[in-house]
Design a protein around this nucleic acid. Structure first.
Lengths: 214, 214
DNA sequence: CCAAAATTTGCGGAGCGCGCATCTTTTCTG
DNA sequence: CAGAAAAGATGCGCGCTCCGCAAATTTTGG
């Protein structure tokens, strides 16, 4: 049926997966280039070479397609966390899992003017309400998986204990804030240090910056 | 003209606000009763006595209308935080601000069977993808205001420092997790203790539950 | 190579979201 | 207090999205 995460359940699954990814990329690229509202489902479908109707078999909206890539990546973080040695302290493992995923895709292939345009388009796209909503939903979904992984690691029950979900939520919030900050940083800054810093602060209980009394 | 945001800029503003709230409640009530997809914009408008077109002058979607009440409440938390004495430690002030807002509306007027139905309907409604997305968006908006209030209090700059947004994000995540947990708790539990506990854990840096080494 | 199963596709319809022009109601000015 | 101006409410209509359904097409398995 569809535990789709098998290594190779068949040639068919692979093709489906490829179409899915292509549709998602097409949606992203077109939206970044012309703006979300100037992209019809029809265009995206055409780009990939399927019928508009088929697009809706994969995604129920443009926003969902766009966010799909992000969601996939976010999911890998949970997997990465499970793969970490149990000896690693929890927060260290989380930080490593998160940064490991962000390490890939950081090779900014082109620093040319195109890149500027791309980022500008990205910002516009992410400013779109529908996309934002979908982004947050993806984040929530990812957090659920992350919570499960954390629960495993700490021997807690995600159904009954707040703990794993709190940790996942805090970690999610941290990455969200960082991405947001990074997106609008005018003199561009590297993400990695930001991420590590944010997670460190969370793990430290977010103490106020300047405690006056001593 | 006038800076419309005055306390009472006129009878007009009041009426608008009232209509807005009525529309939101109507949307919620109908959705809880019959399920979101069995509610047309037309129905909501009729309930309040305005034209369908007018509904869209207030909200751009059913989901937005539904979440509107939640958003308003969330916004009050930021206001509440600003109203707290500066002497209060940050996390204590946050906890107080949050719980203060949840204190109201907790008087469960009816424990009858109706209440059961209501909660069941609520769960269904909140399970709806669109509503979830909108909920998260509202949370994000609220967090922005909260971050501003926190920045004020701690003398940081929400544009440059991660700190205020991290704190707001963490607090937001905590309340989200708590609400979520509370919604599905079968033997119903009071929210307040959950909230305090969650915020306390966050402020403590979310230490793993059973750290073997000493 | 054929039959079964799964996927893609075209068709059609219910709604939604919104721009635009118009009608009403409230507010402002003298 | 009258008349003008501002702002909201409404009606109309268009373009699009999302989805159910059934036919066409492709893949899988024997």
């Amino acid at each position: 049926m569809d535990n789709g995460q098998d290594e190779r359940a068949g040639l068919r699954e692979r093709k489906k997966q490829r179409t899915r990814i292509e549709l998602s990329w097409a949606a992203i690229r077109l939206s970044v280039e012309r703006g979300l509202e100037n992209v019809r489902v029809e265009d995206i479908a055409a780009e990939v070479g399927v019928s508009p109707r088929t697009f809706n078999n994969y995604f129920s909206s443009k926003a969902e397609a766009i966010v799909s890539r992000h969601l996939d990546r976010a999911r890998l973080i949970a997997a990465e966390l499970r793969a970490r040695p149990a000896s690693e302290p929890l927060w260290e493992a989380i930080a490593n899992a998160v940064t490991a995923r962000f390490a890939l895709g950081q090779e900014t292939g082109g620093h040319d003017a195109n890149h500027e345009q791309w980022v500008a388009g990205l910002r516009l796209m992410l400013a779109e309400p529908v996309v934002q909503g979908e982004f947050l939903r993806a984040g929530a979904a990812a957090e659920a998986e992350l919570a499960a992984a954390i629960a495993e690691r700490t021997g807690t029950d995600p159904e009954r204990d707040l703990y794993p979900r709190l940790v996942a939520g805090a970690a999610g919030a941290a990455t969200t804030v960082v991405i947001d900050h990074w997106m609008r940083a005018d003199p561009p800054v590297p993400v990695m240090p930001l991420l590590r810093d944010a997670l460190r602060q969370i793990a430290a209980g977010l103490p106020p910056p300047t405690p006056p009394p001593s």
